[in-house]
Simulated assay, not measured.
Amino acid sequence: MDDSVVTAVQQRLVNQYQRMLSQVETIASNNDVEAVHRYRVSLRKSRCLLAIFADELANTPAATLAASFKQQAHVSNAVRDIDVFIAAVDIPMIIDYLLQQRLLLQQQLRQRLGDLQRERQLCLSCLLLPWPTTAVTLSAAVATQLQQLQQRSIAASKLAVSTGKDKHWHKLRLLIKAQRYLIELCLDNHHSDASLWQQRLGEFNDNCNQLQFLTDLPLQPKRLQRQLRKLTKRLKQQKKQQKRELTVLVEQELTKKDAFGLKLKNSS
């Protein structure tokens, strides 16, 4: 039986939020990089569902939860960004510096997670309360949203190519990710064929975050400054190349009849 979209989405939100909660203790007790990643992924999927089905969830606590989930995700941004940076850097002096910064950021994250304990309890209570349902079924809502996301992805890709602005490439990344999450969370036994786009746009986003991190760094000793300048130059060159490659990929994709319609694969 096809559930009401509200009932189905609420159940998926509960599952994702409980997965996130299971990572909080791990983050609090050790420096597990993957625990931070899993914490963020669960919140990201939850926020994605809330955004996609905002209209269908209008008479529920969805808007309040979305604001809280954003806050809970934000506290982990700095730690995750530096984790990705450490994995990408091959200069020992910079790696040592980043590891020192990571310890400080990890301490801040633990403190902020502790401050949000009451917030998490309230969110879980809201998720477990009965929500008013609607006659719209999950399958009907998913079909509509996939079509809309595809059209928005086409428009975003054209804008990214024409302007070359980072924010438009990031918008395309988020739209493709929304399609992928929608398929994987709401279509049983299916997953999306989004690996190429996910990899390329993800690498571009990581590069942008790393350049911003370097821009925001306080003044460092001269020896380290030289290494940081070299790294910044290399990242800027990589970013230009990534944009060129993404432009070619978009132009190729737009020639297809079903452009930016992620292919479904049966996982059973």
Rank of each mutant, 00 (worst) to 15 (best):
51 A>M: 06
57 L>A: 07
101 Q>V: 05
29 S>E: 12
115 D>H: 14
126 C>W: 13
63 A>H: 05
132 P>Q: 09
92 P>Q: 03
88 A>V: 01
112 R>A: 13
179 Q>I: 08
38 R>G: 06
156 A>G: 08
105 L>R: 14
233 K>M: 04
154 I>A: 11
163 T>S: 15
47 R>L: 14
24 V>N: 04
43 L>E: 11
65 L>E: 07
1 M>Q: 04
63 A>F: 02
135 A>Y: 01
16 Q>E: 12
231 L>I: 01
226 R>T: 08
215 T>H: 15
67 A>E: 11
9 V>Y: 03
268 S>G: 14
18 Q>K: 12
215 T>N: 14
104 L>H: 12
197 W>D: 04
68 S>D: 15
15 N>I: 10
48 C>G: 11
40 R>L: 15
209 N>T: 09
46 S>C: 13
198 Q>I: 01
133 T>Y: 00
228 L>D: 02
10 Q>C: 05
116 L>Y: 13
153 S>F: 05
224 L>V: 03
81 D>G: 02
265 K>F: 14
84 V>W: 01
126 C>H: 13
58 A>F: 01
255 T>A: 08
88 A>E: 12
83 D>N: 15
116 L>P: 03
64 T>L: 10
17 Y>G: 07
177 K>P: 00
2 D>Y: 01
237 Q>A: 13
112 R>L: 14
119 E>K: 08
135 A>M: 02
264 L>F: 01
20 M>L: 09
267 S>L: 13
29 S>D: 11
250 V>M: 03
118 R>C: 04
36 V>K: 09
147 Q>D: 12
121 Q>P: 00
81 D>M: 05
183 I>V: 13
7 T>K: 09
246 L>Q: 02
58 A>I: 10
84 V>I: 08
